[in-house]
């Protein structure tokens, strides 16, 4: 039932192509059914605008500016979030000292900190990094705290009975054991970071994808706005995929189920007769497979 990787990539590409196609049809035909697509730039307009931008220098300056801001802010947030999360989870004193402040600051949207950033930092640049960092900090902090608290106590006890001290426990048990949870937080964090870096650039930036997108809006250059939006989308996708891949590589030790959820469970609706027959045949094969697994496990056990 599992589709081969190639077939899956074709499906994904088709999904994007369909979305673009729909956009092109709606805008080129100037559809006006309550939702108004007549003012909307078409895909080809946007493609031309993008081609024009790609050959100019400004686009790449904007791109590197935004990337520098987000990567700096995100890296700071990752380090600070993990450190604070571990500290709060492991030390009741730290929890009492830092907990209340963190809980009060956490609900404030990072973008609402723009006035604070302007007051605190001598340059806009640092303010934007500060806002990006704050945005990603909390998801990382919270997930690290949960992951550290959920660690199996035996791991730590095992290392302690080997004579391991605090640093050894931190390096050999706490950090590697919490890594799956930490990466959950980093994945959420990178997404929130993009939202905040773009918003901050729109408000107070000079250069950057968010700044350019807002500029284009103010001069009524709609294709330009869409070029900005697409750029943000692609950059966000690339960076979160990078975080995801790194996480998967670092937590390769996690036991993954051999079950591949590739096939659509077409037989799950017992409505029509042929479908039911299909389901029956599946039900029959399942216990057989399980039986096989059991004997294999049993054989392993007897190797002792």
């Amino acid at each position: 039932m599992t589709r081969r990787p190639l077939a899956r990539y074709v499906l994904r590409a088709a999904s994007l192509a369909t979305a673009l196609g729909l956009w092109q049809v709606l805008t080129s035909l100037d559809i006006d059914l309550w939702l108004r697509f007549s003012q909307f730039p078409t895909v080809t307009d946007v493609a031309h605008a993008l081609a024009g931008r790609l050959s100019g220098a400004d686009y790449w300056t904007d791109l590197t500016d935004s990337l520098t801001r987000i990567l700096t802010g995100f890296a700071l947030a990752a380090v600070l979030g993990v450190a604070t999360g571990v500290l709060v989870a492991r030390s009741p004193l730290a929890e009492d000292l830092l907990g209340p402040v963190l809980e009060v600051v956490r609900p404030i949207p990072a973008i609402a900190l723009v006035p604070v950033a302007i007051l605190l930092f001598p340059s806009n640049e640092q303010g934007i990094v500060f806002i990006t960092c704050t945005a990603a900090f909390f998801p990382v902090l919270v997930s690290t705290r949960h992951a550290v608290r959920a660690l199996t106590p035996v791991w730590e006890e095992a290392v302690r009975t080997m004579g391991g001290g605090r640093l050894r426990i931190l390096g050999s048990v706490v950090l590697p054991g919490a890594l799956p949870g930490i990466f959950g937080g980093l994945s959420v964090g990178i997404g929130v970071s993009w939202i905040c870096v773009i918003s901050a650039e729109m408000i107070s930036g000079q250069y950057g994808v968010g700044y350019r997108t807002w500029q284009d809006y103010t001069v009524v250059n709609y294709p330009g706005v869409f070029v900005g939006m697409i750029t943000i989308g692609v950059l966000g996708w690339v960076t979160s995929t990078a975080v995801e891949l790194l996480g998967r590589r670092l937590t390769h030790w996690l036991p993954r189920s051999s079950y591949v959820p590739g096939g659509r469970p077409r037989a799950s609706r017992p409505l029509a007769a042929p479908v039911r027959a299909d389901g029956d045949s599946e039900r029959k094969t399942q216990p057989e497979q399980q039986g096989e697994n059991h004997t294999e496990e049993a054989r392993d056990e007897h190797l002792v």
């Binding site: 791991w155 006890e157 095992a158 302690r160 009975t161 004579g163 050999s172 590697p176 030790w253």
Partner: peptide
């Protein structure tokens, strides 16, 4: 406190899974 001179073998999985 614990010491490397007294090793403990646990009932459940105490091997570090990574």
């Amino acid at each position: 406190g614990p010491s490397a001179g007294r090793a403990l073998v646990f009932q459940e999985d105490a091997l570090l899974p990574w």
